[in-house]
């Protein structure tokens, strides 16, 4: 297993069943968690930011909706707004786009993962959780190709298993674990446990 200083950011993609799954992770991370976390959750194009508010209330980390040109910081969780793609720029800032949906999704997990892998290379952890569809599978391939680390939720604990399954089919995943092991695993990977 890699050493703590090896990682600089986490990207996470989740679709159907996402709110429930994220609730098992985000509120259970300590405020001292050393990596920024950037999340794409598939949302209905017309949904608003209630989802962000919800998590803001119950988390130790600072949860916010991703805004363009904002530099990503440890202790923060950035969630893609609905109807925009979320991308990472080489200055380690976020950017948004209204490009065509990818895999029928906007925001698309592949777009975030692809651009984050360009920036953070082997210092990136990519996580795929429950969901329908195959968004994220090209993204995890890119993360692996650039030397990063990929964790996928195991099928038994996933509310919908197509998305984690597609990720597993795409690459040799580094870790396949149940939802409840996500937090301890992230703490271990970042040297906090």
């Amino acid at each position: 297993m890699k050493h703590q200083s090896d990682f600089e950011a986490i990207v996470l993609g989740v679709s159907t069943g996402g709110t429930k799954a994220l609730r098992m992770i985000i509120p259970n991370l300590p405020s001292t968690f050393p990596l920024p976390i950037v999340i794409v959750q598939h949302l209905h194009p017309h949904s608003d930011s209630y989802f962000v508010e919800d998590f803001r209330q119950c988390s130790n980390l600072i949860v916010e909706q991703a805004e363009e040109k904002v530099g990503i910081l440890p202790g923060h969780v950035y969630i893609a707004p609905s109807n925009y793609h979320l991308l990472l720029e080489c200055e380690r800032t976020l950017s948004l786009s209204v490009d065509e949906p990818v895999n029928f999704a906007r925001p698309s997990i592949d777009v975030l993962f692809d651009t984050a892998a360009e920036v953070f290379r082997e210092k990136l952890i990519g996580i795929i959780l429950t969901g329908a569809g195959k968004d994220g599978s090209a993204g995890v391939r890119k993360i692996k190709k650039n030397g990063g680390f990929v964790i996928v939720q195991n099928l038994d604990s996933a509310q919908v298993e197509t998305m984690p399954r597609a990720a597993m089919n795409a690459i040799d995943v580094d870790l396949v674990i149940p939802l409840e092991e996500m937090v301890p695993t992230l703490l271990r990977l970042t040297g906090m446990l």
């Binding site: 991308l87 720029e89 950017s95 786009s97 777009v111």
Partner: peptide, 8 residues
Amino acid sequence: YSRASIKR
């Protein structure tokens, strides 16, 4: 132009 999108 923002590079990430152009690069894609």
